[in-house]
Amino acid sequence: MPAIRVDGLTKSYGQTLALSDLSFEVHEGEVFGFLGPNGAGKSTTINAILDFIRPTAGRVEVLGMDAQSHSRDIRARTGVLPEGVETYDRLTGREHLQFAIDSKGVGDDPEALLERVGLLDAADKKAGGYSKGMSQRLMLAMALVGQPELLILDEPSTGLDPNGAREMRRIVSQENERGATVFFSSHIMEQVEAVCDRVGILRDGEMVAVDSVEGLRDSVGGGESLRVTVDRIDDDAVQAVRSLSDVSSAAVDGKEPPTLVVQVDGSKTAVLSELEERGLEVRDFSTTEASLDDVFQSYTTDREVKAR
């Protein structure tokens, strides 16, 4: 049973189509990164998952239940960190936590949760005096109440400094080890890269790619770039490398020492043996992975992309 199943989800606001026939699944026990630029429809999707909005067409199932008719049951077993939300100015951090604990009917200790997100010192301060990062931590703590089976985190790093973002990722990993499925949205690739098992990329209300982090790298042309230092270089050798099936491009990158940069999708040894067959001596080589940010860019900007 998938933790989340989105099936043909369409949402339009008047003339504007926010989501168009979106389908994907989040497997039980995984950390799923839901990636897309701002305005791609991530929040709309999450709002439909939580029954904050009603789909124009299609359906959503969470933990095997219909998102609309069983929303309360779903939310009893889910922890949510909503996006772009203000906390209650006049209530303290502790009162926020107590409210979440009472709401879920569990016996968690507010202090333990506040400590986990590094907010214990501010437990009795009113949330109106919290910084953006502190509010975000507070809401993360509220999401953790009751050891939920599913965590839905909408842009959890908003307002967090790099340190805070790292802390947040650590908590995500801990929760995942505990057995929770984590559904995690972001518009920044590097934040999902470190913690996510799989990533879905949303663009203009459509899922343009769903794959593991590795798979995504491979799916984009020039998944890896191979840097080869040789004793000498000749045009024939470069041509021969270029004509290899897995190679998308090859170029000379400097004469001292002679270096060749090859974008390769599959076997790197094929490139190396081709060079050696041509009588070139390979002195050194290194590979660099295309950064996931490049992958993300290629999916979400108008550059030509071979999808999937």
Binding site: R72, R75, E86, M142
Partner: peptide, 14 residues
């Protein structure tokens, strides 16, 4: 307006 209704409705309240 502030979005805090999502805090309320993320919890198991109808």
């Amino acid at each position: 307006e502030t979005g805090s209704i999502k805090i309320l409705l993320s919890l198991p309240h109808s």
